[in-house]
């Protein structure tokens, strides 16, 4: 496929799919699914080391073996301070200064707190992070996030883990029209490959997902489907779809019909 790489901050990614590393049954399954997705960037979370049970497989080995760009999130943070503290600790581990900013506003929907998200993003940009905020699909908020220096803006398709697909394509279209300076990634809510394709057909630069792959009956199969969905949607976008029309337009010539 003749396409430019996805550029985020100073990075160039050959894949437009970003995947999470959570919710897999085993580390081996995560490894295989992430490989099948073709991704070059994966999200991770930061948590306390479990002092009593050290049996968990090593995510660190998976990250290093795959050579992925690592995008630590601030999942579970409800305040700006917690998000900034989490990002700072994640950077200290030493796998780069990317940060997926998440400041959650409500535990049931996991919708982000837009005000906290903007403030945390501003602080972390000033601290030298490459900031990718997870945010609501509000065009004005997305512009503000761009304006404070985020390297990409990542509006949601639907609530995290819901698999509902793209709930508000018209807002996403507006956001795409208004924001051209930084990449736009659809983050969260994708359920299946066609959702990923639709996100790309809307002109988004990439898609970020976790549950849709990790929660599928066959995560490796779904990771492959998502890779193809993103590629298909991207190629369709670049190729310029036909306009929608209400009435038919014959595919076969009208001339030369039998009398």
């Amino acid at each position: 496929m003749n396409d430019t790489p996805l550029r985020i901050g100073g990075l160039e990614l050959s894949s437009r799919l970003i995947v999470g590393t959570g919710k897999y049954a085993t580390m081996a399954q995560a490894d295989a699914a992430i490989r099948a997705s073709g991704t070059r960037m994966v999200t991770v979370a930061l948590r306390r080391v479990n002092l009593t049970d050290r049996s968990e497989g090593s995510l660190f080995d998976l990250l290093q073996r795959g050579g992925y760009h690592v995008l630590p999130n601030t999942a579970g943070c409800y305040t700006v301070d917690d998000a900034v503290r989490t990002a700072m600790l994640a950077r200290e581990i030493g796998l780069g200064s990317l940060c997926k900013v998440e400041v959650i506003g409500d535990p049931k929907t996991l919708f982000p707190d837009p005000i906290g998200t903007l403030e945390a993003s501003r602080v972390l940009v000033n601290e030298g992070f490459t900031v990718l905020p997870y945010c609501t699909d509000d065009p004005v908020l997305c512009q503000r996030l761009r304006d404070v220096g985020c390297a990409a803006v990542m509006p949601l398709a639907a609530p995290i883990g819901s698999g509902l697909g793209i709930r508000n394509p018209t807002n996403l279209r507006i956001i795409r029209e208004q924001i051209t300076e930084v990449p736009l990634i659809v983050d969260a809510g994708v359920g299946t490959a066609s959702d990923a394709a639709v996100a790309m057909e809307l002109g988004f630069d990439g898609v970020l997902m976790n549950t849709a792959i990790a929660g599928a009956a066959d995560p490796i199969g779904m990771a492959t489907a998502m890779r193809l969905g993103v590629e298909a949607g991207r190629l369709a976008f670049l190729s310029g779809r036909i306009p929608r029309r209400l009435y038919a337009s014959a595919s076969s010539p009208l001339d030369g019909l039998l009398a």
Partner: peptide, 10 residues
């Protein structure tokens, strides 16, 4: 003291 590391997440 807090000791943290990366775990699977989205």
């Amino acid at each position: 003291i807090e000791v943290v590391h990366f775990v699977g997440g989205g």
